[in-house]
């Protein structure tokens, strides 16, 4: 086949296409474009909530469970106070519940175990793409919030964690729709064992219709807030502040 002018033109077109790809990084960093992309998350959240209502995440059978549930993110906590509690089996530890509540609480692990328990075998989906199925047990978050009593302005539930990543404290937050969902629990037990350190001992949030980074480990304090502004980076979570991960992680 003879190479003609039109073949060269075609190759040229492909070359220009390649150059355009390089421009994508600049587009990615343009503040206007970026804000537009971030704004579409709100659309995703509203659309998904409209479509799914208060539907429950699928619960699996024992036979569906991952033989080995990997841990990732923070798998241990350095702070001396935490290490001391871990050594004592969290016997002296309490969960602090405060902020916009009628009665701030300090709940020992025994009090959380004494509340009505929910056990669920659910799928944990990491933002990276992998999934693991495990069994979780603990009181519903709604029961703990009912004990504290929400003040009228409370809109967000913030989970302050004992672990630090890159020198910054880990935290996460959800709104009241997810906070009062029946499968949203404070898990102290996983796969019929007390929660291990790698999986977030003594307490880990399970908010089953969102991705893994929302499942805050090492929960020390629950704070009820009117707004997420003014707290750390203001975006409602460690990864949200650090990397622009979506605050609503339903997809």
């Amino acid at each position: 086949m003879i190479v003609t002018r039109r073949h060269l033109l075609g190759i040229g077109t492909a070359g220009v296409g390649g150059l355009l790809l390089g421009g994508c990084d600049r587009l990615n960093e343009a503040p206007g474009v970026r804000q537009g992309l971030i704004d579409s998350e709100g659309l995703t959240m509203r659309a998904q909530r409209l479509l799914i209502g208060d539907a429950l995440a699928r619960e699996y059978a024992e036979g569906d469970m991952s033989p080995n549930f990997r841990s990732n993110g923070s798998v241990s906590v350095e702070s001396g106070a935490y290490r001391a509690h871990l050594a004592q089996g969290f016997a002296q530890w309490t969960l602090r519940v405060d902020g916009l509540v009628q009665r701030p609480l300090d709940l020992p692990l025994a009090a959380l175990k004494a509340l009505p328990q929910r056990e669920q075998i659910t799928r944990h989906d990491c933002v990276e793409g992998w999934s693991a199925i495990g069994k979780w047990q603990g009181p519903q978050l709604s029961a703990v919030l009912a004990r504290a009593g929400l003040l009228r302005d409370a809109r967000y539930v913030v989970f302050h964690c004992a672990d630090r990543l890159g020198g910054k404290p880990y935290y996460e937050s959800i709104d009241l729709i997810d906070a009062f969902h029946p499968q949203t629990i404070l898990a102290w037990r996983m796969n019929d064992q007390p929660l291990s350190e790698a999986h977030g001992a003594p307490l880990r949030l399970r908010v089953e219709r969102q991705l893994g980074y929302k499942q805050a480990k090492f929960v020390m304090r629950i704070e009820l807030r009117r707004s997420l502004a003014g707290l750390y980076g203001g975006k409602g979570g460690f990864w949200e502040d650090d990397r622009d991960y979506a605050w609503y992680a339903g997809i």
Partner: peptide, 24 residues
């Protein structure tokens, strides 16, 4: 089918492809 929220609302998405990792 990879969206945990959509899976809650429409579990048929999971059954259709044989699970989330098959869908992926």
């Amino acid at each position: 089918a990879m969206s945990p929220a959509m899976d809650a609302g429409f579990p048929v998405l999971l059954d259709m492809f044989g699970g989330r990792q098959s869908a992926r």
